[in-house]
Amino acid sequence: MGVSKQLRIQRTLIYIFYGILTILSIIPFWIVIANATRSAEQIKQGPSLIPGDNLIYNWNVLVEKGFDVFNGITNSFIIAAGSTILSLYFSSLAAYALVAYNFKGKKIAYAIILGLIMIPTQVSLVGFYQFMSQLGLLNSFIPLIIPAIASPATVFFMKQYLETIYHPDLPDSARIDGAGEWKIFHRIILPQMKPALATMGIFSFVTQWNNFLMPLILLNDESMYTLPMLVQLLKTDVYRTEFGSMYLGISLTIIPLLLIYMFLSRYIIGGVTAGSIKQ
């Protein structure tokens, strides 16, 4: 009885601790959303968790400054979703090849992938811009989406995960039944990788959604601007800084990310035991 009571106390303390951490992580987001409904004068008085009644005015300011939120969301979603899908699919394919097959140069190929992770994106920025200019792909979404096919960090993560769940008996059984390699990958391997796909999907989508530097360099047409690029249009006036409209613009860039996380997080939790093999 004493041990059972002690376990309940420990469990309660753990719940309280994680509850506090949850609240602390939510407060900054809530302050940003609350400030989006407050006036500049109210914001200057200090942070508050209570929303204001200045939302419509802040929205009108956004519209006057050329903040086309619906067009920005569309552009950001096209880039983020397209690059995320390509990154996850081809990285999973590469990871499966590195884990399931033995071929000449396998270790060298994996070493090159690890080496590419260590190279900062900024190093190749000028060369990439010049290359896209020569191809006539400036002011286009193509150079922001297609290069996601080669994502070394995602390949590394997928390979590490696949090594923990991969069992050669499953593909061998499928081959005996007449399944081809592509069918094995799509029907057997990919479903087992749902937790890894959801995890890297969140990271990849958030990274591409918040990407500011590369679109800023490649895109010149304001109708193709992403949400982070539109936020930088909210320049301050000489005599008045509309902090409320700025917070509203930032909030509009955060809300889609929260929705994506809420949608994908259930696959991380629910798919932990997916693909387990009964001995």
Rank of each mutant, 00 (worst) to 15 (best):
R11P: 03
S151D: 02
N58W: 06
N60P: 06
K159C: 01
M132K: 03
G180C: 08
A81W: 11
A100S: 08
R38S: 02
Q42V: 01
D177Q: 03
A81T: 15
T121I: 10
I31Y: 08
M246W: 10
I189T: 11
D68I: 10
V206K: 10
V3M: 14
I149G: 00
F90C: 07
P256Y: 05
G249H: 10
N71M: 12
T84V: 05
L216D: 14
F17Q: 06
L252H: 06
K44V: 00
M246L: 15
S140T: 00
W59R: 14
V231F: 14
I277V: 14
L144K: 00
M262K: 11
L24E: 08
L218Y: 10
T121Q: 15
L24Q: 02
E64I: 02
M1V: 12
Y15S: 01
L216V: 06
I146T: 09
Q160C: 02
V3E: 15
A198S: 03
G275L: 02
M224L: 15
L116F: 08
I73L: 13
L137M: 13
K183E: 15
S265P: 08
R8G: 09
A274C: 00
G2H: 12
V238S: 13
M132E: 07
S251N: 04
N71L: 12
S83R: 09
K183L: 06
S39T: 11
I119Q: 04
I50Y: 04
G275P: 01
N75Q: 06
V63C: 11
